[in-house]
Design a protein around this nucleic acid. Sequence first.
DNA 1: AGCTTCACG
DNA 2: ACGTACGTGAAGCTG
Length: 874
Amino acid sequence: MKKLMLIDGSSVLYRAFFALPPLMNSKGTRTNAVYGFMMMLFKVMDDYKPDYIAVAFDVKAPTFRHKEYDAYKATREKMPDELSCQIPILRDILSALNIKIIEVPGFEADDILGTVSKQAEKNGLETYIVTGDRDSLQLVSKETRVILNKKGMTDVEVYDYDIFRDRYGITPSEFIDLKGLMGDKSDNIPGVPGIGEKTALELIKEYGSVNEIIKNVDRIKNKRVREAIANNVDKALLSKRLSTIIRDMPIEFDIEEYTVKEPDKKRVRAIFEELEFKSLLDKVSKDDTAPNVDRVVYRVIDNVDDFNEYISGVERIAISFKVHEDGLAMTSLSSQEKGTVFLPLYRLDDSMKYALYKLLSNENIKKSGHNIKRLLNFAISEGYKPANISFDSAIAAYLINATESEYIIRQIAKDFLNRDILDDSIFGKGRNRTDFHNVEEEMLNQLLGEEAEVIGQSEPLMREKLDELSMDRLFNDIEMPLVMVLADMECTGFNIDRNELLRLDSEFTEQLTSITKEIYNLAGEEFNINSPKQLSHILFEKLGLPVIKKTKTGYSTDAEVLEELAPQHDIVAKILEYRQISKLKSTYIDGFIKLTEKSAKIHTSFNQTVTATGRISSTEPNLQNIPIRTDIGRQIRKVFIPSDDKHVILSADYSQIELRVLAHLSSDENLIGSFIAGEDIHTRTASEVFNVPIDKVTPEMRRSAKAVNFGIVYGISDFGLARDLRIPREVAAEYIRSYFKRYPQVKEYLDECVKKAKELGYVTTIMNRRRYVPEITSKNRNIRMFGERIAMNTPIQGSAADIIKIAMVNVHKKIKDFKSKLILQVHDELIFDVLKEELDEIKEIVRWEMENAVNLKVPLIAEIKYGNNWYDAK
DNA sequence: AGCTTCACG
DNA sequence: ACGTACGTGAAGCTG
């Protein structure tokens, strides 16, 4: 059944005005009523998805009710100016939304709703009346429902026939009789004095309509009520007449005129922007997954000849693509010279894919894409060598603002081209995606085509922005070349010793079973050790151990807490041990067993656009957090082996890169001196902080100094240092004071970072990578201090990230004709699979490229080790 | 989906 | 009087 939605515009607007605080835009225009109206409108349209819609308004002219009864609505105050000035705005929006407004002089909005809904009932439509006025409840029927909006604007009460009967015990048409007896204060309808809702309902239930009640007035038992009615027959009849909504206005309505149409999005957006309706703006733009009349269907290319014809004479091609079930499903190409085309690869033979890979490898044509590494991987695995990959819009957007949660083409279209394109969410994220085979090809064609066009058209604008921010070199010479480096690394993969893996699995499983038993014995019952909740119950309730720390949801049981509790009960140490092994097994052993079922090699994905500082991250699996800090964890590195026995694993890591970067950035003479002297930096720091000669530094002092150095890099606080070293805060504060006394320019530099962030709103790295720090102006002290630590840490961490990226690009270029391969990056460390014959040469290339990636005020040192697995490369 | 915990630099 | 070290990703539990 088709649905008609009728909105009592006057009533909803009024409600909204009084329900919401007096919002205005920055120009001082009052917007609350319009805002509330729109919230309501979008909600009901979303919830009920009507086929027809119209909004009715009262017109100023007096209605028959005024003529009949002078006092009608006489007590109502004049509409405030703050509200009346919003009416033209609302009309404007409704017109942009292509929603019909109905108004008829001499009738109220109610009457229009009544008349139109009656005609709708005759035509077999399901009608929804949206209003804030309970009077309209009289219109409820089997076909017509009333949606009453309440205070909150978006919470509503829906009345259908049955709900109404349940609530009032009378029929909707008897609701008018109820009004006739009770009257209505707000409309100044008198009703029968002395009769309220309760009495009125009883009378109607017993006798029916007002007429019947009057006829039977003598039979009313209660004297007070009987006399009230008998003395006010006229008033009752008048009140009923005034309350009766007209359902047969002498006007024909053509329902077809109310068909829901595509809104004029541009206009709606312009108005919402003017009114500063930010959340509503998103709604308008988000909801356009529906095919748009204006959208173009692009030319389809389905054979290699046409493909080659398309790419001939083209200088630069923008490529969009979609992957499905781990295969390349489709792509669109867009170029200035030849326009935009769609390649439905999923239904074409493989020659089309190869033609595409060949294009990717064509040195004479520049390629642009969005997260293009994903596409390169397909070509590389088929043996192609992509070349001239010159622009990635995701990376450009990331450099422009590194703290966005995601970088999608749709957003770039909006930000740089002010264009709305189709939503690609049908492809979903990760595993929850719909099968595109269920989607019309025309839709896919439009979607991919728009994306390719946007990549191509936004490129010059994004490049301009990068130039303006002085990040053109970072983009062109570091990040873009790095795309190919990472793609190669991902495709090469890390070889895994499955037997060793399975051996570790049974070893860990065995240990886990035995520890589990011991824990159950000590606890006196079995429980899920992995559940912090159940564990809390055992530790803090059953065993009565003291609560050290609380979390949002309960008691904390983290390692820090457990270490403190360990002396009090034997179970605690066992739990720590269980935790450690269980973590190692589930994350690494079980995870890698799954990943090596098909092939011995594991291929991580590097993400170049997630971290706020410029580091890269690694997922599925994360190979940047393979255990090393504990002996037992470190065993896991034994499963990471060279590609064959002619190769070794080589690890090259920067020694103290962050502190060296700090020495450079701060120009601190003492710190620079330490590095030039080539001393152990933590020992030297200890000697400075504790004021003892280098040879009098104890291991304990060195340990403390190391923590101080970490603290400096993280944006130090005495609290953090105190917690890390488990010393009183005052002592930690003293360490920090004495550190800064010895390294005064470090102090100056860190202050400078904070000052810069406050003044400019951002901080930068040596390669001009930028991070905005909005936290630094927060009124909340914690957030603000967090901002200060970000301002201190980001230039250090980010510059180190810049440096290793440069080294990666340079090394990759140098070793491209070797058999040895770069396979992993772990922030300050590069891992290679090195052919033994090439070992000496590779060692020197890697060392030189890492140490000379940039020229700092201190030397950069790379430490190189190798072995028959990652564990032995130490 | 959010929280807790813990693996890494 | 408050409550903090910086940057990540994955697993398991819970609502």
